[in-house]
Design a binder for these strands. Structure first.
Lengths: 241, 241
DNA sequence: GTCTATATCTGGATAGAC
DNA sequence: GTCTATCCAGATATAGAC
C-alpha cells in the first residue's frame, strides 16, 4: 500500500541520468558564450563538441592521477586535440581548472533544488533531498570527485566559493531538520552535527565509489540504506513503514 | 551513577595525546635505523631532529597545497634545511612520500588496537573503537589528512597497501557489529553498509577538520555525538543511558 | 581552426666547496 | 653535515605554417 504511493512519487534514477546529460551540453554552450574573450573558436558546434571532450578527458585523467600530475601533453594525446588546439579553449591550465569547477557548481545548482517543493512534509523533503543528492553525485561522479580532490589547487577566491557551496548544501539539510524538530517528527538532537553527519554519508558515495562498485551496491540501494539509517537515528518515534 | 563508571573507564584524550607524541620520536628513530643505506647522516640525535622537522614541515606544506605542488625548494626554505641537506635524508621526493606513509601506518598499528580487550561487551568495544579512532586521528590529524589526500600519488604497491589498511579498519567495525547482532544487542541491519557508514563518520573528523574547528566542536563532543547517533540507529532497543 | 615546432620556465637531482 | 651552484628533464605556453 504505502509502497505503491512511494514508487509513483519517488524520484527515479534513470530519468535523472538523462536530465543531467542534457544539462552537460547546455552548460558547455553557456560557458562558450560567456568566455568568448578567452576562447578563440567562433563556430558554436565545433566549440561545444571540443569543450565537452576537453572537460570529459580532463576529469578522466585527473581522477586517475590528479590534475597537477596530468600534463597538457597527456590531455592532448588522450583527447586527440593538439597542444595548440587546447590553448584556443583556455589560456592557462589554471583557467581550465576553474572552468570545470564553475561548470560543475552550476549544474549542481540547476538540478539539486528543483525536486523539493516547499509544501512537502519535512520527512518527505529529507528523503527526496537524500535521493536527489545521491543520484546527482552518481551521474556526475567524476566531477564531484574532481571538485573534492582538487580544491587545494584553487586560488583563494575560488576556494572560498567551493567551501561556501559545501556549507550551503549542509544548510539545506539543517533547515529541514529544524523544521522536522519543530513539528515533532524528529528528536531534539544537535541539528548542526546531524546535518554534517548526513552530508558525510552522502559524500562517501562519490568519494569511495570504488568501494561500493566493488561490492556491487547500487545508488538506489545506498540511498534507501542511508534514509533508513538516518531516520532510525533521528525520528521521534519508529519510522513510518 | 552510570556517569561515574563511564568516566573512570572511558579513555581520556589528554593521556592519549602524550602517547602519540612519544611514538613520533620513536618512530623516527626506527626509520633512521632502517634506512641507514639511504640516509647519509651518521649521528642519531641530529638525524632524528631533522627527520622530525622534515616530516612535520612536509605535512604542513602538503596539507596546504598538496604534496605535488610543494617543491623541494619550498620544503627547503620552510624547514631551514638546504636542498643538499634534504637529499641526505631521502634519495628522491617519492621516497619522502613513502617514508611518511609508512611512518603513519606504523603509528596507527601501534596505537589503534591496544585499547580494545576481547572480553569487553560488543557495546563497549564499539564505543571504545569509535573514541580511540577519533582521538588518534585528532592527534595525528595532519598525517591522516595527508595519507587520505595523497594516495593517488603513490605507486601501485603502496596504493594497494593503503587501500588494504582502509578496508581492515572497516573490517574491525564490521566484526564488532556482527558480534553485537548475534548477542541481540544490535538490530539485524546490513553490517557491511553500517560499518562503511561508521567509517565515513570517523573520516569526516579529520578530513573536514576546518569545519569542526570553526564551529568549536571538540573531539570528545564529536565522539559522544557519533556514538549516540550510531547507537540510536542500530541498537535493538533504546540506548543504555 | 588545427597542427608542428620551439621558446621559456620550473623543479628534481647532483657535484663539489667549506 | 651542510651549503651553493649547476645540470637537465619535463612542463607550460606561443609562433607561425597550413
Amino acid at each position: 500500500m504505502e509502497t505503491a504511493a512511494k514508487q509513483t512519487e519517488k524520484i527515479c534514477f534513470d530519468t535523472f541520468r538523462q536530465m543531467a546529460l542534457l544539462s552537460m551540453e547546455e552548460i558547455c554552450r553557456e560557458i562558450f558564450h560567456e568566455n568568448q574573450q578567452s576562447i578563440k573558436i567562433k563556430k558554436e558546434p565545433v566549440a561545444i563538441r571540443n569543450l565537452v571532450n576537453i572537460f570529459h578527458t580532463t576529469l578522466k585523467l585527473s581522477n586517475e592521477k590528479g590534475f597537477h600530475t596530468m600534463s597538457l601533453r597527456d590531455l592532448s594525446s588522450a583527447s586527440g586535440l593538439s597542444m595548440g588546439a587546447l590553448y584556443s579553449y583556455f589560456s592557462s591550465k589554471d583557467e581550465l581548472l576553474e572552468m570545470i569547477q564553475k561548470q560543475g557548481r552550476r549544474i549542481v545548482g540547476k538540478v539539486l533544488f528543483d525536486h523539493v517543493s516547499p509544501e512537502d512534509s519535512s520527512l518527505k523533503k529529507m528523503r527526496t533531498l537524500i535521493r536527489v543528492h545521491l543520484y546527482l553525485t552518481e551521474v556526475m561522479q567524476p566531477w564531484f570527485y574532481f571538485a573534492y580532490m582538487e580544491t587545494k589547487n584553487l586560488d583563494k577566491i575560488q576556494r572560498k566559493r567551493s567551501i561556501e557551496s559545501e556549507l550551503f548544501t549542509e544548510q539545506v539539510f539543517h533547515d529541514v531538520l529544524l523544521e522536522g524538530q519543530k513539528e515533532g517528527v524528529y528528536k531534539a538532537i544537535d541539528s548542526t552535527l546531524t546535518a554534517g553527519v548526513i552530508k558525510a554519508l552522502l559524500q562517501d558515495w562519490y568519494v569511495k565509489r570504488w568501494k561500493y562498485s566493488r561490492r556491487h551496491i547500487s545508488v538506489e540501494a545506498y540511498a534507501e540504506f542511508v534514509i533508513s539509517f538516518v531516520e532510525s537515528a533521528i525520528l521521534a518515534k519508529a519510522p513510518v513503514a
